[in-house]
Amino acid sequence: MDIFSIVLQIVLALGFLMFGFMKFGSKQMVDEFARYQLSSGFRVFTGLVEVAGAALMIIGIWYDQIAAIGGLVLTVTMIGAIITHLRVKDPASKTGMPIILLILALVVLFLNWGALFG
């Protein structure tokens, strides 16, 4: 396992644990999802996916294949987040974090890509 991947996985896990749990009911996330015109059920689903992605990142420290799957889950999630921010015409300041997280998730995915097929 590459130490760079482990560091990225820890950063992503911590971030997505925080962002994921916020989606379970923080006023900020409730208001944001209302602004996006997305249901509270979708907000909770998104939180569950983010927490699951964080768990995959943590487990992936020991299992490269799981790290790759976690990278894929978080990549797809962040593509959805970026599309949502663009759809509501958010400024770059709100779209920037999902873009950064997308790049980090892609790096983890690519660093562990070979484990998916090995």
Rank of each mutant, 00 (worst) to 15 (best):
V88G: 09
A67V: 05
F45L: 15
R43Y: 05
L14E: 01
T95C: 00
F21C: 02
S93K: 07
M78Q: 13
M29F: 10
A67Y: 06
K94D: 12
M97G: 00
V76R: 11
I79T: 12
I83F: 14
L12W: 03
K23G: 05
G80D: 12
Q37I: 05
V51E: 07
V88M: 13
E50N: 03
F33H: 11
G80A: 14
L12M: 08
G71Y: 10
I79R: 12
Q65T: 07
I100Y: 00
I66S: 01
Q65V: 09
G15K: 01
E32S: 14
F21E: 01
V44S: 08
A68L: 05
L56E: 01
V51Y: 05
K23Y: 05
A34H: 14
G53K: 05
I82K: 08
G53M: 07
L86W: 13
A55S: 02
A54V: 09
L48W: 06
F33D: 10
T77A: 15
T46I: 10
L12I: 04
A34T: 15
I58V: 15
G53S: 08
V88S: 11
K89P: 01
L72C: 11
Q65N: 03
T46R: 03
A13E: 02
I61Q: 05
G47S: 06
V49G: 03
S93I: 04
P91E: 08
M22R: 04
S26D: 04
V11C: 08
F16W: 06
I82P: 09
T95K: 00
I69D: 04
I82V: 15
K94S: 14
M18V: 12
F21S: 07
L17T: 07
L38Y: 12
V44K: 09
I59W: 13
G60R: 03
A81G: 13
I79A: 13
G47P: 04
F33P: 09
V76I: 15
Y36F: 15
S40L: 10
A67K: 04
G53F: 06
I100N: 00
Y36C: 09
G41K: 12
I100W: 00
